[in-house]
Amino acid sequence: MIINQKVSDLIELNFTGVVIVSEEPQNEFIQIQSEKWLDVAKYIKTDSELKFDSCQCITGVDLGEDKDFEVRYNFHSMKLKHKIEIRIAIERKKPSVSSIEQVWRGADWLEREVYDMYGIRFKGHRDLRRMLLPEDWKGWPLRKDYKTPNIYNGMKVPKVRKGWD
């Protein structure tokens, strides 16, 4: 809680209006607007009291059929040994958010994987293409409204043999 409050205050000090205050009393994350995300990211890496030099995990989340997407980042500091979580909400129609690949090199592959599974575009990423699925795959598999295709390049995809259940 203490590091969370401190980080939240420092971000609010330098970039006003970015942190969204939530009504829940006990939260271990910071919710941010998506407009100034690249500047906030550079700030938390270089500021001497924060020094988050390692991007651990980037998760894409689909909260439900008629709700928004979310991208959640987990950061960790090797020097000062503390960690935080930052969440950004994205609209469903044309999902996109700024890329932080130039700030932390490890975010490159993690963002490509989120793009592959959800279709969220990362603005400013130098090489955004599919990572785990083949290049000509159609659809974004981890969305809640995804339907498995019936055939791919001549091979049947779903289970077709009788008597297996």
Partner: peptide, 8 residues
């Protein structure tokens, strides 16, 4: 530095 930046 490379190792920490890539998250290794």
């Amino acid at each position: 530095e490379v190792a920490i930046d890539y998250g290794v």
